[in-house]
Design a protein around this nucleic acid. Structure first.
Length: 301
DNA sequence: TTTTATCCCTGGAGGC
DNA sequence: TGCCTCCAGGGATAAA
């Protein structure tokens, strides 16, 4: 499931192949891949054909390719199972191929950029770029203080140098929601999904259902530090792959799953204390934690 | 404003 | 073998 590290691996893989390239043609195979582009497939195609890609940018789990000399960008969210694959121009269709962009790069020649998505939670759109409220770059990979309108509402991610640590700590301290719910709230901090939320909370020894109001500023600062460490380690390993749902632009898996301490490891010993990891239902998904290292305390942490 | 629940979707796993 | 149910989960939206 693509979270920040996986999306960043995709962005970094796409950048050298598409920045400076011209989009020569667009095939929309399945319109469900355009749920974020309400004007429809014909409008999507007409806005892209002939355009040149100026950059490859990302904030949290949102990825976008600003178009040169224009106020628009091709925006992508990979959802649960979306993939952006680089292929030779006449490559056979992928099993769950939804959209194919034909591009021509001045150095690399013709390429196909394939958006493939099994569960169809991902989507592409051509979106307007607007100014960022803090005048800092819109995201990683671009110096411009611009962001697609559909990504403008989400917070910066923890690896963004413009991330507001103090604002995050203060907001968490005011909210009574479970800390895991707050970590998954993209309006508060972006890029974290179920895997890295569980891993960061385990590293911080915080129970996922601890209310934000029960966490001291010091505890939230420590958690933020662990979030960054986990994300950076995952990035260095190429992201987390459990199956074919996440691969980089060349179709290769990441290796961070070898380093997971709790996620998906219910019943297995905690790497720190040996107590069996517990899995509980949480927000229509799963939480994994060590019942000994991560106790739910009544007093503040 | 904050919090919580529901829905969207596909394919693999497991039970019968 | 075939059918059925459950499960995975990011984000938008509605409801409380």
């Amino acid at each position: 499931m693509p979270e920040l590290p996986e999306v960043e691996v995709v962005r970094a893989g796409l950048a050298p192949a598409v920045v400076g390239a011209r989009i020569t043609a667009v095939d929309v195979i399945d319109e469900r891949a355009l749920t974020r582009h309400p004007a429809g497939a014909a409008d999507f195609v007409s806005r892209l054909e002939g355009a040149r890609v100026a950059a490859a940018a990302r904030r949290g789990k949102f990825l976008w390719l600003p178009l040169e000399g224009d106020e628009q960008a091709l925006m992508a969210h990979l959802g649960m199972s979306g993939q952006m694959l680089l292929r030779v121009p006449d490559a056979a269709p992928e099993r769950h191929e939804r959209v194919r962009l034909h591009v021509e790069h001045p150095a690399h020649g013709r390429l196909a950029v394939v958006f493939s998505d099994q569960r169809t939670f991902g989507s592409l759109a051509v979106d307007e770029l607007i100014d960022t409220p803090d005048a800092a770059p819109g995201g990683f990979g671009t110096p411009l203080a611009r962001i697609p309108t559909q990504a403008a509402h989400i917070a910066r991610d923890p690896l963004d140098t413009a991330f507001d640590d103090a604002g995050f700590i203060a907001t968490v301290g005011r909210r009574s929601s479970a800390i895991k719910r707050l970590l998954l709230d993209q309006n508060l901090v972006s890029g974290i999904g179920n895997i890295y939320a569980d891993e960061s909370l385990w590293a911080s020894r915080i129970h996922p259902e601890t209310p934000g109001t029960r966490l001291s500023a010091r505890a939230v600062r420590r958690l933020l530090g662990e979030v960054r460490l986990v994300l950076e380690k995952a990035l260095a390993e190429g992201g987390t792959s459990f199956d074919a749902q996440y691969v980089n632009v060349n179709g290769q898996a990441g290796y961070f799953s070898r380093h997971l301490c709790v996620y998906g490891l219910a019943g297995q010993p905690c790497p720190r204390c040996g107590t069996p990891i517990r899995r509980v239902a949480f927000m229509n998904r799963s939480s994994h934690f060590c019942p000994r290292c991560q106790r739910l305390r009544k007093n503040s942490l």
